[in-house]
Computed example of a mutant assay.
Amino acid sequence: MSDHDEADLLEQVRQAWRDVLDVDDVGLDVDFLAAGGNSLLLVMLWEELDVLTTRELRVSDLFAHGTIRAQAALLSSTGDAEVPVAGADRRSALLGRTRRDEVVS
């Protein structure tokens, strides 16, 4: 995907967020829930973004890739490449645990 295509996709994702969240603007690296989103709005966002990709897109993918930048990267991938999960380490830190802690407990 060219830089121009990536910029267009990034702007399309950003516009979908604006529409769903009913805001004028939101930062590229702000988490959807922190921007005022909730699970119902995430489903609405999924409906907006699903048409922008040829890959199978699940609502859980959008939750795992919670920023505009991460979602645009997800949409531009073919599904074969591993797309980094934005904020996973931060979420674990906020929760004060890791998956290993959950298994050990």
Results as ranks from 00 to 15, higher is better:
residue 103 V to G: 03
residue 65 H to K: 04
residue 66 G to P: 02
residue 88 A to W: 04
residue 82 E to P: 05
residue 86 A to F: 06
residue 100 R to N: 12
residue 33 L to S: 06
residue 34 A to P: 01
residue 23 V to A: 05
residue 6 E to H: 11
residue 15 Q to V: 04
residue 67 T to S: 04
residue 53 T to I: 11
residue 86 A to D: 13
residue 35 A to G: 02
residue 46 W to N: 00
residue 11 E to A: 14
residue 27 G to D: 11
residue 64 A to Q: 15
residue 50 D to Y: 08
residue 51 V to F: 08
residue 77 S to R: 10
residue 46 W to M: 09
residue 57 L to R: 10
residue 98 T to I: 08
residue 63 F to I: 14
residue 10 L to V: 04
residue 90 R to Q: 14
residue 11 E to D: 13
residue 68 I to N: 05
residue 63 F to P: 07
residue 93 A to G: 05
residue 78 T to Q: 12
residue 30 V to N: 00
residue 10 L to E: 09
residue 90 R to S: 11
residue 84 P to L: 09
residue 31 D to Y: 11
residue 84 P to E: 12
residue 25 D to Y: 05
residue 88 A to N: 05
residue 38 N to L: 08
residue 92 S to T: 07
residue 50 D to G: 07
residue 45 L to Y: 00
residue 58 R to A: 11
residue 15 Q to P: 03
residue 8 D to T: 08
residue 15 Q to C: 07
residue 99 R to N: 14
residue 67 T to L: 02
residue 70 A to I: 02
residue 9 L to I: 09
residue 90 R to T: 10
residue 1 M to K: 04
residue 84 P to W: 12
residue 38 N to I: 10
residue 98 T to Y: 01
residue 56 E to Q: 07
residue 74 L to C: 05
residue 26 V to I: 06
residue 57 L to C: 04
residue 78 T to S: 15
residue 7 A to E: 13
residue 45 L to T: 01
residue 72 A to H: 00
residue 100 R to Q: 15
residue 10 L to T: 08
residue 48 E to Y: 09
residue 32 F to L: 12
residue 35 A to V: 03
residue 4 H to T: 14
residue 31 D to K: 06
residue 20 V to L: 09
residue 88 A to R: 08
residue 66 G to M: 03
residue 12 Q to D: 15
residue 24 D to N: 06
residue 9 L to V: 13
residue 97 R to V: 13
residue 96 G to Y: 01
residue 84 P to V: 13
residue 44 M to W: 07
residue 67 T to F: 01
residue 66 G to R: 12
residue 6 E to I: 14
residue 14 R to D: 01
residue 71 Q to D: 01
residue 8 D to E: 14
residue 82 E to M: 11
residue 6 E to S: 09
residue 73 A to E: 10
residue 17 W to F: 15
residue 1 M to R: 07
residue 97 R to N: 08
residue 82 E to H: 13
residue 42 L to P: 04
residue 34 A to W: 05
residue 94 L to E: 15
residue 57 L to V: 13
residue 64 A to M: 15
residue 103 V to T: 13
residue 77 S to M: 05
residue 82 E to K: 11
residue 85 V to I: 13
residue 90 R to L: 12
residue 67 T to C: 01
residue 85 V to S: 07
residue 101 D to Q: 07
residue 36 G to N: 05
residue 60 S to R: 15
residue 26 V to E: 07
residue 77 S to D: 05
residue 68 I to V: 14
residue 84 P to M: 10
residue 47 E to C: 05
residue 14 R to Q: 11
residue 22 D to Q: 15
residue 69 R to K: 13
residue 81 A to V: 14
residue 96 G to N: 02
residue 75 L to D: 12
residue 28 L to K: 06
residue 35 A to W: 03
residue 94 L to F: 08
residue 57 L to Q: 07
residue 3 D to C: 07
residue 63 F to S: 13
residue 100 R to A: 15
residue 40 L to R: 00
residue 68 I to C: 10
residue 8 D to P: 00
residue 87 G to H: 03
residue 30 V to R: 09
residue 15 Q to W: 00
